[in-house]
Design a protein around this nucleic acid. Sequence first.
DNA 1: ATTATTAAATGGATCACCCATTCAATGGAA
DNA 2: TTCCATTGAATGGGTGATCCATTTAATAAT
Lengths: 296, 296
Amino acid sequence: MIHLIIHLMSTKSSPRAPLRLRNASPNRRERVTEHRAVGVTAAPTFKPIHTRRTFEEICERIREQLALGILKPGDKLPPERDLAQQLGVSRNVLREALRSLEMAGVLRLQKGVKGGAFIQEGDTRRMNEVMRDMLSLGTISVRELSEARVHVLDLVVQLACAHARRADLDALEANIERTELATKEGRLLDRVECSREFYKLLAAATGNKVIAMIVDSVTEIHMRFVYAKVASSGVAMARLAEKRRQFLSALSERDAALASRLLRSHLESVQRMLEQDPGSMSLHVALADVQPGMRR
Amino acid sequence: MIHLIIHLMSTKSSPRAPLRLRNASPNRRERVTEHRAVGVTAAPTFKPIHTRRTFEEICERIREQLALGILKPGDKLPPERDLAQQLGVSRNVLREALRSLEMAGVLRLQKGVKGGAFIQEGDTRRMNEVMRDMLSLGTISVRELSEARVHVLDLVVQLACAHARRADLDALEANIERTELATKEGRLLDRVECSREFYKLLAAATGNKVIAMIVDSVTEIHMRFVYAKVASSGVAMARLAEKRRQFLSALSERDAALASRLLRSHLESVQRMLEQDPGSMSLHVALADVQPGMRR
DNA sequence: ATTATTAAATGGATCACCCATTCAATGGAA
DNA sequence: TTCCATTGAATGGGTGATCCATTTAATAAT
């Protein structure tokens, strides 16, 4: 574990001293003298308003260090007290920044001696949170999300057919076996979990983490609907494992057209199942228990 | 503007009073007595470690209200001082939560009387930030992002062909005209901006905001490469507007195959242009000036 | 050697202030 | 009356001191 002592001085823009945005105008009266160039009728050069707040400034500087590779996952920031002093800000406002970055999945704060603020590996679940917030705020709809999912999954099938490796196929096979077992033993909700995992594995099989992240984010909400539906109705998709096997077989033989057809058909039947009970795809179901998966 | 007075009491879980996680054990010595069931050898029911910090708790409760539709975009939260008292937490820790939510694009904090914490419309640029962070942290690579972009854009072309409306096509047409003008006047960087806008409009033409958000997020970084390349080399894609016109024509005639072919060919030539100068697609270029577009 | 105790480091949280901005109310001048 | 300047209150922005809780290493006791 590298314990960097980091100078969070800005690398771009003028080499300003510790933030010190505060106390800029100790006396309001002096402000009047700021009016400049009284008689000049030239282009009114408005000051670029920089009412950037210090916590934003701090977030930005830390992200800057990340972007420059000076900070990397596993690194530790200086203790809050030290860093606050380095930056010339109060500990309180520094913590506002650190918590924001923690919420954003960039940092993890850990208590105790040898604790501190550690840079994290990127948490791909952040995108799920974005989707949830967008849904909560009404920016996107359940319909758009479902539609996007169908299209994205189709793309994923193409890519998975092209790029899936032995290990990916094996993982999918193992998943199907778990699905079969859960089916035999009547553990319906476990089977839903298997489904969730199935799509995760399929996404991973594309070999592209960006695509995988996108797929996960659009699948997450959908699986909640399925989970809720299965939990309440007690019924579940028939011949699930069997269908998965057919699909995996097509995937193994790189038959994208067939795999695509099989998946689309499955998605449609699931959709029909969900829509039997209007309201099973309500926002409420999608958003219940907000952020249970995130940072626990 | 609705001024809700909101009770941020949790709706799920027990009707607990204001958070009051603190002062739980005023005296360390008393802790010893917490050991329970001394002689019981039964299943060791470990406490589920709920070291959830209050700022997380607060974020969750506010998101809960969003999910339940009690809070909607445009609503205002109570003043910090009031809300802190309602929740039984200090103002500082409340602010940590509010700032996190602001960074997440859920809130906007506004100063002055009649100011406050306002729920925002969902900011779709949040996904761009996620991409940038993932790139910074090395979770995803430039290659994966570029690759994903190509595939996603192909999907977008299919969808845009199917769903583009008159207004969408007109907007694209107008964009091409701006591109032509910029070309004539030699404003190369403006032309790059036109390109950025072009993909945004194309994404919007799918009629699906989820897809649009995804496209924007994978295109954002790419346009930085193009911008940097054009800015440094002074050269730019030849016959850009012309190619766009051909593409738009195919789109108008709902010829997805042709449109797809045209776009892919264009993307490839751009890629060749970028790769002429190795290093032009470096992380540094992608991440310079982190978060300039976000909340300025 | 092993185990219990202690102490220090560090994040978690509170309190009491003060500043800066904004906006409505007020009041005086045209 | 109408308009503009002043004022004051509401509210977010920020500070510093202080305490608590957790974690770990060093130390002491067995």
